[in-house]
Amino acid sequence: MTNIPPVDLARQYKLISTPVETAVLDILSSGRYIGGTVVTDFEQQFADYIKVRECVSCNSGTDALYLALRALNIGKGDEVITSPFTFIATAEAVNLVGATPIFVDIDPDTFNIDVDQIESAITPKTKAIIPVHLFGQPVNMTQVMEIAQKYNLFVIEDCAQATGAEWDGKKVGSIGHIGAFSFFPTKNLGACGDGGAVTTHDSTLAAKIKMLKEHGSRVRYCHEDIGVNSRLDAIQAAILQIKLSYLDRWNEQREEIAKCYQTLLSPLPYLQLPQALSGGKHVWNQYTIRLPDQQQDTQLYRDLVREKLQKMGIISMIYYPLPLHLQPVYQNLGYQKGQFPVSETVCNQVLSLPMFPDLTFEEQQQVAYGLKDCL
């Protein structure tokens, strides 16, 4: 019996080590480490993959969200609707531009924002919606775009965990006004360090994002706005180019692993399996189950299962143990415990099992049988 990590990047590296090492050494030999054709080539390739006109790379998914909000002139006094069940970067970027995040509860089956509740959160101050395609599952973007059009709102897709996912045949990041991607190493498309990108069909928005990410400058040493330093370095761009060519295959492998888990784990008592929403293509950045405590709504049951799995060498993760509206930093927003009951319940129950393209069938069986033993 071997230890099974949540993600095994070393195993992935072995598959692509030769082209990656060649590309990195070429860049080191060139002396051109920032910018250059390697970066612009990746931007074009990623734009082609997402099927958008423009891609602007940056140094993280957080910056991608921040730059998107800045480009749309969202700031002090504005409100942006999003989910409380996500990594803090989604809401954090809203605060960084001076706006206020407004939370809407999630759907218990998809873990994504409950689209049916969005309209009730819209006020005269609302300027945008940030739907988060969580765990690789696309949000119902048809409904989101209908609401946005009705109320004249911008839509920024948070695609950090969903590169390659689709809604109604369209890649996420190509449906809203702007898409924001993360290339953190554990993502479906991950760099060997931090990285991110913004996608859009709007060339004017793309030009503004390029300016903002280069210290507010279009022409060197001429600064027309207060910007930031948010560049994707050439080494990361070269690695991402190589990995992009594998992405569809890796996503297909993830889907097969998810199907295998569904078969091996169904049916089991005290266990809710993740479901792929009809109309979308899930890319399974995480395989996240729910472990409801039949006695009371606490995380104790989930945590005990996780501890037992770890003793068996099966390492799981909890995304996310505390919803954003209950985070200490957001107590000033005035949200109360119980206000978003689905998010709060899910935070006590979720457990993400090992999920990566090279997870073997034997390892999948080990995870599933270990979980069965625990339950």
Results as ranks from 00 to 15, higher is better:
273 L>Q: 09
273 L>Y: 10
244 L>T: 02
150 K>I: 09
271 L>P: 05
181 F>Q: 10
249 R>F: 05
248 D>T: 08
177 H>C: 04
264 L>Y: 06
184 F>R: 01
192 C>K: 05
252 E>V: 00
167 W>Q: 11
259 K>G: 13
206 A>F: 05
233 D>E: 07
227 G>W: 04
270 Y>L: 10
180 A>W: 03
235 I>M: 12
266 S>Q: 07
258 A>L: 11
216 G>W: 02
267 P>D: 06
181 F>A: 15
210 K>Q: 10
221 Y>V: 01
252 E>R: 04
154 F>I: 14
174 S>W: 08
156 I>V: 15
195 G>L: 03
269 P>S: 13
258 A>N: 05
230 S>W: 01
267 P>L: 08
271 L>G: 06
248 D>P: 09
271 L>C: 06
150 K>E: 02
209 I>R: 05
177 H>W: 13
217 S>M: 01
189 L>H: 08
148 A>F: 02
265 L>Q: 04
191 A>V: 11
221 Y>G: 00
186 T>N: 05
241 Q>F: 13
196 G>E: 15
194 D>M: 09
148 A>Y: 14
269 P>T: 15
243 K>H: 13
256 E>V: 12
145 M>W: 01
162 A>Y: 00
234 A>C: 03
273 L>A: 01
143 Q>P: 05
174 S>R: 10
215 H>Q: 11
239 I>P: 06
249 R>E: 13
161 Q>N: 11
191 A>H: 05
210 K>W: 03
207 A>K: 03
249 R>T: 15
170 K>N: 12
255 E>N: 00
179 G>N: 12
202 D>F: 07
158 D>V: 06
232 L>N: 14
191 A>Y: 09
191 A>R: 01
264 L>C: 07
217 S>F: 01
172 V>W: 03
263 T>L: 04
251 N>R: 07
176 G>Q: 07
175 I>S: 08
229 N>H: 14
182 S>V: 14
267 P>Q: 13
236 Q>V: 09
189 L>V: 15
207 A>N: 05
258 A>H: 00
205 L>N: 00
241 Q>A: 10
222 C>N: 08
161 Q>V: 09
206 A>Y: 01
188 N>T: 12
207 A>Y: 03
181 F>Y: 13
151 Y>N: 13
169 G>I: 11
194 D>Y: 02
226 I>F: 07
162 A>M: 08
226 I>R: 11
227 G>F: 00
168 D>N: 15
173 G>Q: 06
179 G>V: 14
221 Y>Q: 05
260 C>W: 04
179 G>C: 00
252 E>M: 12
269 P>M: 15
196 G>Q: 05
206 A>G: 03
235 I>D: 10
149 Q>H: 09
238 A>F: 04
150 K>R: 03
189 L>F: 14
258 A>R: 10
230 S>F: 07
234 A>I: 02
200 T>W: 02
169 G>P: 00
183 F>M: 15
220 R>C: 10
246 Y>N: 10
270 Y>Q: 13
